[in-house]
Computed example of a mutant assay.
Amino acid sequence: MLGCTRIDVAYRNLDVLVPWSLSDYLDMNRQQKAWLDQRLKQHLAWHCRTQLPEYLTWLDAVRSMVASNEVSDQQLLVRSQEAKLAIAKVADQITPSAAELLRGMSDDQVQELRQAFAKDIRERQDKYVKTPLAKQIDERSQRMEKRLSTWLGELNAQQRLRVVNWSQALGEQNRQWISNRAHWQAQFSKAMEQRQSPAFEPRLEVLLKDRERLWTPEYRIAYQHTEQQARSLLVDLMAQSSPTQRQYLEGRLSKVRADFSALKCLKG
């Protein structure tokens, strides 16, 4: 589900909320890797101790919505905003560490990062933009149906049609998404050129925590439309859901909660 995915990202992929997954873009030396591993452990421990209890409360609110079969646009908007705030807290916590790591990058590493960014955009354009729009819509429908089946089980014919209609409504959203991604990467590369400047960390904070300030005007419009369409899709799918699907979803949510509750850092 929309919010569940965000919460999952906020915890399980803490290391990729920022450009810490540098191994995907460049080769770090042994000292950098060791520093990163140690600092990441500290942040994960902080995250589990201080943030995870709030996520358990958030999951309970989601489960209550499903159990009462009262999933509305307003409720989803509130849950989504809560998830965004959770991710912002993580970005705020790790920005100083990210700045320290990135300041230590050599000129060669920064150049390598810039080249990797360019490759990333080319590959995404080939995969998501340069294909015919009809194929983009079909592939987007398939990806969404696969994600939804993880939470609801197999979709019925009415639900599958609703997913297709959702994908059609997004149109060429892929183009705005990738264009905005390229814009952010360009801003990040520009900041890296000034990484020894006192202004670097404040700029990095904007790049990591307040990305919306850097969105292109086209993407800002597309994002609002995409978010609204996603909530509308989930409201309709739940209205079309069977008791078996809702029971399946409750079971999935309960398992996520149990997995989080069982973490040793919470017990400590």
Results as ranks from 00 to 15, higher is better:
residue 154 E to V: 07
residue 95 T to Q: 06
residue 119 K to V: 15
residue 133 L to A: 01
residue 97 S to M: 13
residue 181 R to C: 07
residue 101 L to A: 11
residue 147 R to L: 10
residue 155 L to G: 12
residue 142 Q to H: 08
residue 204 L to M: 07
residue 179 S to H: 12
residue 151 W to I: 07
residue 136 Q to A: 03
residue 173 Q to L: 04
residue 88 A to C: 09
residue 139 E to M: 03
residue 104 G to R: 13
residue 188 F to N: 00
residue 194 Q to D: 05
residue 115 Q to K: 15
residue 125 Q to W: 13
residue 99 A to K: 05
residue 181 R to Y: 11
residue 189 S to P: 01
residue 155 L to N: 09
residue 189 S to Y: 08
residue 205 E to L: 14
residue 122 R to E: 15
residue 176 Q to P: 03
residue 147 R to H: 14
residue 152 L to N: 04
residue 101 L to D: 09
residue 100 E to V: 02
residue 142 Q to A: 15
residue 92 D to R: 14
residue 137 I to Q: 14
residue 128 Y to W: 13
residue 121 I to A: 02
residue 121 I to L: 08
residue 96 P to K: 05
residue 195 R to N: 01
residue 101 L to T: 13
residue 176 Q to C: 01
residue 89 K to A: 06
residue 192 M to V: 07
residue 141 S to N: 07
residue 153 G to V: 10
residue 201 E to A: 02
residue 124 R to Y: 13
residue 163 V to N: 09
residue 187 Q to G: 02
residue 127 K to T: 12
residue 98 A to F: 06
residue 128 Y to V: 02
residue 106 S to P: 08
residue 188 F to P: 01
residue 179 S to Y: 09
residue 192 M to F: 07
residue 168 Q to N: 13
residue 164 V to F: 12
residue 139 E to C: 00
residue 117 F to W: 14
residue 186 A to F: 06
residue 180 N to T: 02
residue 140 R to T: 09
residue 192 M to S: 01
residue 130 K to V: 08
residue 95 T to W: 01
residue 124 R to A: 09
residue 132 P to R: 00
residue 147 R to C: 07
residue 117 F to I: 12
residue 178 I to S: 02
residue 162 R to E: 12
residue 101 L to W: 14
residue 92 D to W: 09
residue 111 Q to T: 05
residue 161 L to M: 04
residue 205 E to F: 14
residue 191 A to T: 00
residue 195 R to T: 09
residue 204 L to G: 11
residue 97 S to A: 15
residue 104 G to A: 08
residue 137 I to D: 02
residue 191 A to D: 00
residue 127 K to Q: 11
residue 119 K to R: 15
residue 182 A to E: 14
residue 172 E to I: 01
residue 163 V to I: 03
residue 140 R to M: 03
residue 138 D to W: 07
residue 133 L to P: 04
residue 175 R to V: 06
residue 156 N to Y: 05
residue 91 A to L: 10
residue 95 T to L: 00
residue 156 N to Q: 03
residue 196 Q to S: 11
residue 161 L to Q: 13
residue 138 D to E: 13
residue 90 V to W: 11
residue 109 Q to P: 13
residue 106 S to W: 11
residue 183 H to P: 00
residue 115 Q to G: 04
residue 117 F to K: 10
residue 114 R to K: 07
residue 128 Y to P: 08
residue 107 D to Q: 02
